[in-house]
């Protein structure tokens, strides 16, 4: 071990590092970008969703929806809610008094807004996701919103329920992950169906 040895090795290391930076830091990501854009352009660009010819977001990224006529997403801890420049969860712990109060408030609010018993409000409706951008809700949470949305839009609840069923995705391959409803896609389908 000696200083001159370390200097000599560091100098060699710098040459290796610079060449690797060109290969791994520039050529590799650009090559992946090029191939992805050619082969999987839609996904590579963020699975964009359009409405009336305008891009309204990504089917993978949740959006805020307020108002009676929409299906509502989960609570979000990303910025003021679904802020893509501030993704993340609440990080509050299992014994947090603050989180407990928030959960109870959400349960009461969701129950009242949808006219259901507080005990029927599912867990995903009262908890914020890890990303704050969760595009999905559980079929149960979509289910309790059907009557409210149908009333607000002047639609037959059975039609809206059918729409929810159509947009309910099972587990991937039958066993991976959870059952879910994509809120943006469901609301888009509603909007295209019409109603007030």
């Amino acid at each position: 071990m000696n200083l001159s040895g370390l200097v000599r090795q560091s100098w060699a290391g710098l040459r290796v590092l610079l060449l690797f930076t060109v290969i791994l830091g520039i050529a590799y990501p650009l090559a992946v970008t090029g191939v992805s854009q050619l082969a999987f352009g839609d996904q590579a660009d963020g699975s964009l969703v359009t409405h009336d010819g305008e891009v309204v977001g990504s089917s993978l990224i949740g959006q805020p929806f307020d108002g009676e006529q929409w299906f509502h997403p989960r609570p979000s801890a990303a910025g003021d809610g679904y802020d893509t420049l501030a993704s993340g969860g609440s990080n509050l712990g299992p014994e947090s008094a603050e989180l407990l109060a928030t959960v109870e408030e959400r349960r009461a609010a969701v129950a009242e807004a949808n006219g259901v018993d507080p005990a029927d409000v599912p867990p995903d409706a009262v908890t914020a996701s890890g990303s704050g951008l969760d595009p999905h809700i559980s079929p149960a949470y979509a289910g309790i919103q059907v009557d409210r949305v149908a009333r607000a839009r002047g639609l037959d609840p059975a039609d809206v329920r059918a729409l929810v069923d159509e947009h309910t995705q099972g587990r991937v391959l039958g066993f991976l992950g959870g059952e879910r409803v994509n809120v943006l896609e469901l609301n888009l389908a509603l909007e295209e169906r019409g109603g007030s």
Binding site: G89, S90, P123, V126, T127, S129, S131, R180
Partner: peptide, 12 residues
């Protein structure tokens, strides 16, 4: 209180 350990977890 929430009914599941879903705080910080994704539905998918």
């Amino acid at each position: 209180a929430a009914g599941a350990s879903l705080e910080g977890k994704e539905v998918r």
